[in-house]
Amino acid sequence: MPQLVNHLREALLAGDVETTRDSNHGNAAAFAEGREGYLFGLTPLKAWTLTEVLAVMAERVGIDPDPERSTGVDAIDPHKTVAALTRMRDRLRQAAANRERVIVATGHPAGIIEVHLAIAAALRAAGCTLLRPAPGAMFASPGHYMGRELPLMVRYIAGVAVAAERGIALWHTHSPAGMRAMLAELDALGEAPPDLVVADHGFAGAAAAAGLDVVSFADSNDPALFIGEAEGRVRVTVPIDDNVQPHLYAPVSAFLLDGLIDQEV
């Protein structure tokens, strides 16, 4: 455990991360204002003030709760990261033991996807069914990329759903529309929804909004999933910088997958 805490600090996955106070404070304010792009498809059950949002983020992430401080540096408490990873690991072990049907998805195809790929491979090896609904389904992306709206599609990389610009490139996205399309296809085919969703951003938010069991990752400037957890709609949200160099997540994957297959059931 201390070794993982040290790695989180050294790799800037937690501790003094590169995500700024400006971003943390500004996104928390945008969430409190109800701006759609910051909700990840998971509209909160009540109105949240900026002070309340920051209080939740302080409790679950470790950032400064002061609503008056909007500049400077901020931090993710690595001990909170490890505690959340432990709870996620317990749920993954349960999924493996029961050979559950699982969707794995990420809006970060150049960062924390490394963990999603490892989870998908391990669950498959444990006998779980990795669902891949709606491959090629088109969906809208909120905001603009390089001055233009970017139509995206659902694409699977080793069983992990990502957002792609046709066959050209993989894109970072907060949109919940991809997961909505995936769940809609399962429903249209008369198939049961997944037992578990492992995801982030809008992929996680839309799944939680549909009432599914969700474990997720989120950065300190993305309050939606932490508020979802506080409201009892997301099982686990792990506070972590979600877009550093992919290889730096290897110890996180190793921790999550420890004992996943060779466990007593």
Rank of each mutant, 00 (worst) to 15 (best):
Val234Lys: 08
Arg87Asn: 14
Ala126Leu: 03
Gly259Glu: 10
Met153Arg: 15
Val265Glu: 12
Thr49Asn: 11
His174Thr: 15
Thr51Lys: 15
Ala32Thr: 01
Gln94Cys: 07
Val252Gly: 02
Gly37Tyr: 01
Leu212Phe: 04
Leu189Gln: 14
Leu4Glu: 02
Gly259Phe: 07
Glu68Gly: 05
Val5Ile: 15
Val162Ala: 08
Met179Ala: 12
Met153Cys: 14
Pro194Ser: 04
Leu123Ile: 11
Ala140Lys: 06
His7Asp: 03
Leu260Pro: 00
Val56Glu: 11
Gln3Asn: 12
Ala210Arg: 13
Gly107Arg: 00
Ser253Cys: 02
Asp195Gln: 12
Asp222Gln: 15
Gly26Gln: 05
Met182Lys: 06
Arg87Ser: 10
Pro193Gln: 09
Leu45Asp: 08
Ser70Met: 11
Ser175Glu: 03
Lys46Asp: 07
Ala163Gln: 00
Met88Ser: 04
Val238Glu: 03
Glu68Phe: 15
His25Val: 02
Arg60His: 12
Arg180Gln: 14
Ala199Lys: 05
Arg124Trp: 12
Ala164Leu: 11
His25Lys: 06
Phe139Cys: 07
Gly143Pro: 03
Ala58Met: 08
Tyr38Leu: 07
Arg87Lys: 13
His247Val: 13
Ile240Trp: 04
Phe139Glu: 07
Glu231Pro: 13
Asp195His: 13
Ala118Trp: 04
Arg166Gly: 10
Glu165Gln: 14
Leu248Trp: 06
Val17Pro: 10
Leu248His: 03
Ala210His: 06
Pro223Tyr: 01
Gly259Ala: 11
Leu54Met: 13
His108Asp: 13
Phe226Glu: 01
Asp242Pro: 03
Val234Glu: 08
Asp187Ile: 07
Ala254Ile: 06
Thr106Ile: 05
Arg166Phe: 03
Ala134Val: 04
Thr51Glu: 15
Leu39Ala: 08
Ser175Ile: 00
Asn221Lys: 06
Arg180Val: 13
Thr129Lys: 14
Glu229Met: 04
Leu50Cys: 12
Gly190Arg: 06
Arg91Met: 05
Val162Lys: 04
Leu92Cys: 08
Phe217Val: 01
Gly205His: 02
Leu248Val: 01
Glu165Tyr: 09
His144Met: 11
Ser253Thr: 01
Tyr156Ser: 00
Asn6Arg: 14
Ile157Asp: 13
Lys46Phe: 07
Arg132Asp: 15
Tyr249Trp: 11
Ile227Ser: 06
Val198Gln: 00
Thr86Cys: 05
Asp222Met: 14
Asp16Ala: 14
Val238Trp: 02
Ala230Asp: 09
Ala83Ser: 09
Pro176His: 05
Gln245Val: 14
Phe31Gln: 07
Pro65Asp: 09
Asp22Tyr: 14
Gln245Ser: 13
Thr20Pro: 12
Pro151Lys: 10
Asp90Ile: 05
Val197Ser: 10
Gln94Thr: 08
Gln263Asp: 05
Asp187Ser: 15
Arg180His: 11
Ala224Trp: 01
Gly111Thr: 11
Gly107Ala: 04
Tyr38Trp: 11
Gly26Glu: 12
Asp90Tyr: 08
Cys128Val: 01
Thr43Arg: 08
Met1Phe: 04
Leu92Asp: 07
Thr81Cys: 04
Ala110Ser: 09
Gly72Ala: 01
Ala163Val: 02
His201Thr: 14
Val234His: 03
Arg233Ala: 10
Ala110Ile: 06
Pro135Gln: 06
Arg69Cys: 02
His7Glu: 03
Ile157Arg: 15
Asp241Phe: 11
Leu150Ala: 15
Pro109Asp: 03
Ala28Lys: 02
